[in-house]
Structure formats: C-alpha cells, structure tokens
Amino acid sequence: MLDDRARMEAAKKEKVEQILAEFQLQEEDLKKVMRRMQKEMDRGLRLETHEEASVKMLPTYVRSTPEGSEVGDFLSLDLGGTNFRVMLVKVGEGEEGQWSVKTKHQMYSIPEDAMTGTAEMLFDYISECISDFLDKHQMKHKKLPLGFTFSFPVRHEDIDKGILLNWTKGFKASGAEGNNVVGLLRDAIKRRGDFEMDVVAMVNDTVATMISCYYEDHQCEVGMIVGTGCNACYMEEMQNVELVEGDEGRMCVNTEWGAFGDSGELDEFLLEYDRLVDESSANPGQQLYEKLIGGKYMGELVRLVLLRLVDENLLFHGEASEQLRTRGAFETRFVSQVESDTGDRKQIYNILSTLGLRPSTTDCDIVRRACESVSTRAAHMCSAGLAGVINRMRESRSEDVMRITVGVDGSVYKLHPSFKERFHASVRRLTPSCEITFIESEEGSGRGAALVSAVACKKACMLGQ
C-alpha cells in the first residue's frame, strides 16, 4: 500500500517536472537572447534605426563620474514606483581627507489618484512632500541643488532636461508624456511658492545606482535594477552614441532593455503563462523582457503555473481556492519566502493557508518547484541581457580580458534567497573573457542622484555659470 502511494507521488512529481521543464533555458538559448539583445542595442544607438529599435539606448548626458572633490548639501528625489523618497545628502571631506556622503531620508507613498490623475496632481503632491521634508529638517530658507531620480523612459536633451516617452509600472498621470519632466517639477514648486529649489540633474535609477557604486569602486561602469521592473545602464564610447554629437570619451546610456521583445525577438521563448500575464497587464505587448524578470510579474506567473497544475490534477487534489483564482493573489514576496523555507515546509504551508488552501507535504514541495522554475528562468533571462552589455563593452574597448564592476539594486536581487547566485553564475558562463565584480548599492537611487548633481554643480562652477 505504502509502495503504491510512494509510486503515485513519484509519478505525480515526474509529471510536474515535465510541465515545469518549459521554463528551462539551455545555454544556447541564452546565447541567442544575448546576441539578439546586442543587435537591438546597436539599432538603438544608431541614428537611422533608433526610432524602430525596441531597446532605445537613451543617452543620459552623464559623462563624468564623481571624483571626490564636490562638497555641499544636496536634496535628492526618487520616483520610480508607488513609494517616493526625499533625501538630504551631505557631501563633504571625511576623516583623513576621505570623501564622505551622509544621508537623511523619508519615504512617502503615492496615492492612487496622483498616479493615475493628471501630471499637475502628481507633481503638486511631490512638491508637497518636499515642503514637508524641508519643514522637518528646518531647511526651507536654503535654496538647495536638487537631483531627481526618475525611473521611467526619458529622452534627455541635457542633464536637466528630459522628455517622458511613456509611463510604465502602473503610472498613468495624463499630460506628462511628451513633456519635460524637470519643467513639470519646477512648475509645481513655483505653484507652491513656499520654498526654492535648483533642479540641476535628472537621472534614471540605473544611472543613480551606477554612480553610487562608483563611489565604492571606481571600476563600476554598469548599473542595473532588478526590482519591480528590470533595466540597466553602462558607459558607452561616445563615438557609438549617434544621437549625441561628439566622439570623445564616454557617456552613460540608459538601455531601457525592459522593452526588448516588443518587436518579436522573444516570441519563441514566451510561454502561455507569459501571454496571460501580458494580456492582463496595463501595457499589453510592451516591456516583454521586463515581464519575464521583474517583481511586478513574478508572483503572478507562479500563480498561473499553480492553476495549470491544479487543472492537471497534480496539486491540491485538483481544487483551487477562490483566493488562488484571484489575479495578483500570489505576491512576489511569497516566491522569495517559499524558496527561503528551511525544509520543514512550515513557511510554505503558512503562505498557502493564507490563500485558503490546506496543502499536503507533496503540495508544498511542488509549489516550491514552481517558484524555483519561474525565478530561475528570470535570473537566466536577466543574465543574457547583462552578458550582452558586458561583452559589447569588452569588444568596443578591444580588451582581451576586461575587469568590470556592476552596481545592482532592486528588491528581487536583494531579497530573493537564490536569485543573485543563479544570476551571477549564468552571467559568468556567458562572459568567459571578463572578470566581473557585483556590488549592491546602498540607498543607491538617492545618493547617486545627489552625486550626479554634485558633478553638475562642479561643472557649472568651472564653466562660470
């Protein structure tokens, strides 16, 4: 009897593995994704193909990295998701002549009506938060230079001027797309009239992360975010950046690689679950690469896999709870928690219980395998993109072996128990001629924006502006 049951459990697990095998990517698959990513990057950089390229390769006008001589107080704003952060950054000489960066910050959550109302409502709310922060720190009387981390696709015309191309991540505030974001912020500050600010720089969160990590390690020339969304930036040779005049030196390019796949480059790798996630998203047909990796989508992918296993009578005796059938019910943090389970399955059992399920031991094991399959594919897909960037940098610099540091931020990278190990191992397999160091950014977005502002202020002083 026991043997029969054991055989049935083994057969069930084997069927589960057959279904989950769809998520496995072979090294040849990853090399294919990497080569296609490089081709799209090239198209994004070139003037004649930029418009139709899915990977936009947006110039950021960040050319210099901090040298350690900029000092002063800077205000930093960070808008990239449902939370908005205001930070005071003091850049100065530390002990023994070292450079020191001290920060104080406060988080504000953005109400739904500000995210989806008008641009005026959104930026009025942001300036209200700045006003509140300055009151708390008794700094209303000071006109501070301000660095703005704005983590949406922007076409820069200068370091302090950028046109919002399109909202992502659930934002829909009308009247912002096609307009200068810094102008919208300046107008809102003017409307309030109770404080003055000098907006000197606007950067993407990947750029802010790279600059913040450069402060720790001067070989950091790539910034990457794996959180709600997924994106990367890197220092490109100016001669390859056709959208900006000049051939000397390097400029940081914001790849906006989340949109890779929007022209069909990933079609052969998309599964039924991916198509369902895409169809029910706020932007169907867009940001397809990001939807395979980002935390906004990972939990939902797992939920759809679990429903398939229920329908195949391989999980929960073929019956799903009402909660499990509800879109968004299986949160991405559950994926991390399930994979963090120590082996007694308590954590998995508790999560499934909150979803109205009474799982068996085998159910718990199957749910864990589903989570591992989805998150491992995410790590491997992400590795193909980064390997594409790094191999490109090595080739354009004609280096036999390139040493490089990548600064990384984002909740999936930082909080998932195995993502970074799987990701690092896969990147290294795909970049055999590179020695890569990964560092995690601390308060990256805010500190990085302030350091970019410090560079901009120093330049302005040198130019006598």
Results as ranks from 00 to 15, higher is better:
188 A>E: 02
182 V>H: 14
309 L>D: 00
73 D>T: 06
50 H>F: 03
81 G>T: 15
249 G>V: 01
24 Q>V: 14
97 G>V: 09
395 E>P: 02
121 M>C: 14
86 V>E: 05
273 Y>H: 05
380 H>G: 13
134 L>T: 03
103 T>D: 03
450 A>Y: 14
92 G>C: 10
67 E>C: 11
414 K>L: 05
96 E>W: 10
89 V>C: 05
155 R>W: 09
356 G>L: 02
282 A>R: 03
134 L>S: 04
51 E>R: 15
158 D>F: 10
378 A>V: 06
265 E>Y: 05
107 M>A: 14
447 R>D: 09
271 L>H: 01
17 E>L: 05
41 M>V: 05
39 K>T: 12
73 D>L: 06
383 S>I: 01
114 A>L: 14
391 N>R: 07
201 A>G: 12
164 L>T: 11
383 S>W: 00
190 K>E: 07
397 R>A: 13
7 R>L: 08
69 S>M: 15
308 R>C: 10
350 N>D: 04
445 S>W: 14
342 T>Y: 07
3 D>I: 02
283 N>P: 04
403 R>D: 07
423 F>D: 00
122 L>V: 15
387 A>C: 12
425 A>T: 08
202 M>L: 15
21 A>R: 08
108 Y>T: 01
248 E>C: 09
103 T>H: 13
65 T>I: 07
166 N>S: 10
162 G>C: 02
195 F>S: 08
355 L>D: 00
289 Y>C: 07
379 A>L: 10
389 V>T: 05
190 K>F: 13
452 V>Y: 15
8 M>Y: 14
121 M>L: 08
187 D>C: 03
270 L>W: 08
384 A>S: 07
10 A>C: 14
73 D>S: 03
8 M>T: 14
314 L>M: 13
262 D>E: 15
192 R>S: 04
401 V>C: 10
173 A>G: 12
304 L>C: 11
439 I>G: 04
119 A>N: 11
339 E>L: 06
281 S>W: 01
28 E>W: 07
457 C>Y: 09
3 D>P: 07
334 F>H: 11
60 T>E: 03
414 K>W: 02
259 A>F: 15
14 E>V: 12
203 V>L: 05
208 A>S: 03
225 I>K: 12
455 V>F: 05
277 V>G: 04
393 M>I: 04
32 K>T: 07
424 H>S: 10
212 S>I: 04
162 G>P: 14
81 G>Q: 04
245 E>G: 11
274 D>V: 00
435 E>V: 13
245 E>K: 09
44 G>H: 01
117 G>D: 14
158 D>T: 08
95 E>P: 13
329 A>R: 11
270 L>R: 08
234 Y>C: 11
2 L>C: 13
405 T>V: 08
411 S>Q: 11
93 E>T: 12
142 K>G: 07
410 G>Q: 02
170 G>K: 12
64 S>Q: 13
143 K>E: 08
190 K>R: 09
147 G>V: 08
120 E>T: 01
346 K>G: 09
95 E>H: 06
67 E>I: 09
32 K>P: 01
65 T>G: 11
452 V>T: 13
169 K>C: 08
133 F>V: 02
218 H>N: 05
184 L>H: 15
387 A>G: 06
381 M>R: 01
430 L>V: 02
113 D>G: 14
353 S>Q: 04
83 N>H: 10
344 D>F: 06
134 L>K: 03
257 W>D: 03
381 M>S: 01
130 I>F: 03
424 H>N: 02
236 E>M: 02
205 D>I: 06
434 C>P: 01
323 Q>D: 12
62 V>N: 02
283 N>F: 11
267 D>L: 02
387 A>W: 00
276 L>E: 15
65 T>M: 11
25 L>N: 02
11 A>P: 04
187 D>E: 10
423 F>M: 08
248 E>Q: 15
349 Y>C: 11
458 K>M: 06
396 S>Q: 08
399 E>V: 09
423 F>E: 00
255 T>F: 11
163 I>T: 12
444 G>A: 08
41 M>L: 08
86 V>I: 04
399 E>I: 11
253 V>G: 01
433 S>P: 10
364 C>A: 09
283 N>E: 09
219 Q>L: 08
287 Q>I: 12
201 A>W: 05
379 A>S: 13
158 D>K: 09
367 V>P: 00
135 D>T: 11
97 G>C: 07
14 E>H: 02
211 I>H: 02
270 L>Q: 08
314 L>Q: 07
375 S>W: 12
204 N>I: 03
317 H>N: 08
47 L>M: 14
167 W>K: 14
56 K>D: 01
323 Q>C: 13
458 K>Y: 07
406 V>M: 01
275 R>N: 13
93 E>D: 13
455 V>A: 13
419 F>V: 01
287 Q>F: 05
7 R>M: 15
441 S>D: 06
441 S>C: 10
54 S>P: 08
125 Y>P: 02
279 E>N: 08
105 H>D: 14
344 D>A: 11
464 G>S: 12
114 A>F: 10
245 E>L: 05
36 R>H: 07
90 K>L: 10
424 H>L: 03
82 T>I: 13
435 E>Y: 05
189 I>F: 13
259 A>R: 11
179 N>G: 12
152 F>N: 15
374 V>Q: 01
194 D>H: 05
266 L>H: 05
123 F>A: 03
61 Y>A: 05
183 G>I: 06
150 F>D: 09
293 I>C: 11
219 Q>A: 06
368 R>A: 07
216 E>S: 11
20 L>A: 00
134 L>H: 02
221 E>K: 03
434 C>S: 14
79 L>C: 14
451 L>R: 14
143 K>W: 07
65 T>V: 15
239 Q>S: 06
217 D>S: 04
358 R>H: 08
243 L>H: 15
328 G>R: 10
364 C>Q: 02
317 H>D: 15
270 L>I: 13
151 S>L: 06
358 R>P: 02
10 A>K: 10
445 S>V: 15
245 E>R: 10
331 E>S: 13
413 Y>A: 04
197 M>E: 05
105 H>W: 10
10 A>L: 12
335 V>H: 02
22 E>F: 02
448 G>L: 09
116 T>N: 05
19 I>D: 03
209 T>V: 05
247 D>M: 06
130 I>S: 01
328 G>L: 12
337 Q>P: 03
457 C>R: 13
83 N>R: 07
432 P>W: 08
266 L>Q: 03
305 V>H: 00
263 S>I: 13
368 R>C: 11
186 R>N: 03
112 E>F: 10
316 F>H: 15
20 L>I: 00
129 C>L: 02
